[in-house]
Design a protein around this nucleic acid. Structure first.
Lengths: 222, 222
DNA sequence: CCCCGCTTGTGATTATTTTAACATAAATAT
DNA sequence: ATATTTATGTTAAAATAATCACAAGCGGGG
């Protein structure tokens, strides 16, 4: 749903307002900051409850708290990182996750040279111990930063565990067969995002080409 | 536009088919692989031209080539990386970009200890030289992996250059005022994606809560 | 206590996106 | 050759999403 993709933006924005000691905020204020229409903001928020008050607006702290509940940020999340390559290490060092209650409690890798070491104080274990570890420690989320050809295998193992979500950074699109085991997958696919950027940079040239094509079909139009 | 977000998926899928020496493919075949409806695929592709033929389907190589043109992947792209932190280094080491014609030709950082070194054969220069370098080398795209508080400054510098696109990994949402200078921004925001995952994991509990609320409003419904 | 301005929640409207349906054309089999 | 199958491009319908518009409620000033 489109609304859900916007929730993190609201959350972040309200966090900033809180930091600046702003107490109340109207949908119009938010509109100016976020670039959505005020109407959309009101409708978005209204999907989850009636958080505002006529003539007053929204209480920043209350709304922030509510949205954090909706996003599930009021509970701690235990995460593991699978694959201690370049991207994996970068994510392991990223402190923002912890700030919001997402703790990486273990890292798994197949490389024996890495096993036993620590990244950002988090130990690296052998990939073989992953399944046991997840179930033993009630891990919520697995971050996948393994090479493409290892993905399938890992997903197979993960689907036998109590894991709730997979945050997938591999180029492979992971699809869970009809949500049977209830594992949610969030695919990131950085390269897609780069391609989209490339498209938009390229757009002008393209539009011209398409226009020419239309002209062939409707030669009377200028 | 929603179609454009799907183009990279088509591209990737067709690339795989090519590798497997598949010559022709129907919208129905693609539908099974990609999980979109065949109808949507035909309509998507038709936005950019008539690439298929009745009774035959699409020629994989031809369609692949067309889409790569549409995405602007037929031309080389010169990129720079701004900010050689954890994420920056990971991206600098990521080889997939180069495979698709996106070359990181320089890295910029403010840290004097890093300047002069190389990551994955790409030299690190002083951030001060960035503006000159971009204009001198006709750089297309800047990858932004600097800390939050440096973002504004860097964007200001970038907007004075010939740069065409900014691939923004900082937590700050960059908005270009009414596209005046024609710089396209692609914001990534990893944490948003994690929050969305968290929401979906949390969804069941939430649905219950919302249902209770509705019941209050319509007490007659079970 | 009452009025006025502000701002929400919400129903109606418009726009966008997705899906369905089908006429038509190429390819293959007979 | 001809019929049958396959699969597109395209139009129409359905579903989603965004915007508009306004009645109704609250806060603050007199």
């Amino acid at each position: 749903m489109a609304v859900i993709k916007r929730l993190p933006k609201y959350y972040k924005c309200l966090g900033n307002l809180l930091k600046n000691n702003v107490e109340r905020v109207s949908s119009q204020d938010l509109s100016k900051i976020l670039g959505f229409t005020a109407s959309q903001i009101r409708q978005d928020l209204n999907n989850f409850g009636e958080f505002g008050q006529q003539g007053y607006g929204y209480n920043v702290l209350q709304l922030y708290t509510e949205i954090s509940k909706i996003l599930g940020l009021n509970t701690l999340h235990k995460m593991i990182l699978v694959g201690a390559g370049n991207l994996g290490q970068a994510l392991a060092n990223y402190s923002e996750f912890r700030t919001h209650g997402f703790n990486i409690i273990a890292i798994f890798d197949a490389n024996p040279n890495l096993i036993g070491r620590k990244i950002n104080n988090t130990p690296i274990y052998s990939a073989e111990d992953m399944e046991y570890f997840i179930n033993e420690n009630d891990v919520d989320i697995a971050i996948l930063t393994v090479p493409k050809d290892k993905t399938e295998k890992i997903v197979e193992v993960l689907s036998k565990t109590c894991i709730r979500g997979i945050w997938n950074f591999t180029p492979t699109e992971i699809t869970m067969d009809d949500d049977a085991d209830g594992i949610i997958v969030e695919n990131v696919h950085l390269i897609d995002s780069l391609f989209t950027l490339s498209y938009r940079i390229n757009e002008d040239k393209l539009q011209e080409r398409l226009l020419k094509q239309k002209r062939k079909i409707f030669p009377d139009r200028r």
